[in-house]
């Protein structure tokens, strides 16, 4: 559909039509790999500049990873929060007495959704899902990195892995 190229995602080929399109890829993420879904709300306005700017962001995935992990860690003490609930499930499997650091070390980012041209209609820019590394638990934490915000937002509910 387009002749645009990303250094990290590869050639930009969107499904969908004028109302919006998406493509999927797998990219390096904080030392591992992650499934990425790129959603473009305005394909008619998509240009190489936007893709180049996106590449700059994807060059250093340590940053969003760290932001998301810090947000998850901050919510662990809060009973009823999604991170606290997942940790509690994890402890049931692994046995109690494991520290927060061990739980966090066991988390992996599984998927990332990018909405770089959401504008005022879609606040989200990056949405990350974190799950337990060995896949023993299906539930995942959703962390959003929205525009016009003062920090990451963690969803209050766990969602099962797709």
């Amino acid at each position: 559909m387009t002749e645009l190229q990303s250094r990290i995602l590869g050639p930009i080929v969107l499904d969908g039509g004028v109302g919006g399109g998406a493509m999927e890829a797998t990219i390096p993420f904080a030392g591992a790999e992650i499934a990425v879904r790129l959603e473009i709300d305005h394909p008619d306005r998509l240009d190489q500049q936007l893709i180049d700017d996106l590449d700059v962001v994807l060059d250093d995935t340590e940053i969003p990873d760290r932001l998301a992990r810090d947000a998850i860690a901050a919510l662990l003490p809060r009973e009823g929060s999604a991170p606290a609930m997942l940790r509690s499930d994890w402890e049931q499997r692994q046995g109690a007495g494991r520290g927060a650091d061990e739980f966090l070390a066991d988390l992996r980012a599984t998927t990332m959704v990018l909405t770089p041209d959401g504008g005022r209609e879609h606040r989200d820019r990056v949405v990350l899902r974190y799950g337990v590394a060995d896949g023993s638990l299906r539930d995942e934490i959703t962390v959003r990195l929205p525009a016009r915000s003062r920090g990451p937002e963690v969803d209050g509910v766990l969602r099962p892995r797709r």
Binding site: D53, V56, D60, I63, P64, V126, L145, S149, R150, G151
Partner: peptide, 24 residues
């Protein structure tokens, strides 16, 4: 800046980042 996707840096009121955290 916000219209162009540059929000006030998360955790730092004296600068802007793309989306609040990404370069530049």
């Amino acid at each position: 800046m916000s219209d162009q996707d540059f929000d006030i840096t998360w955790g730092n009121d004296s600068s802007y980042n793309k989306w609040g955290w990404a370069p530049y």
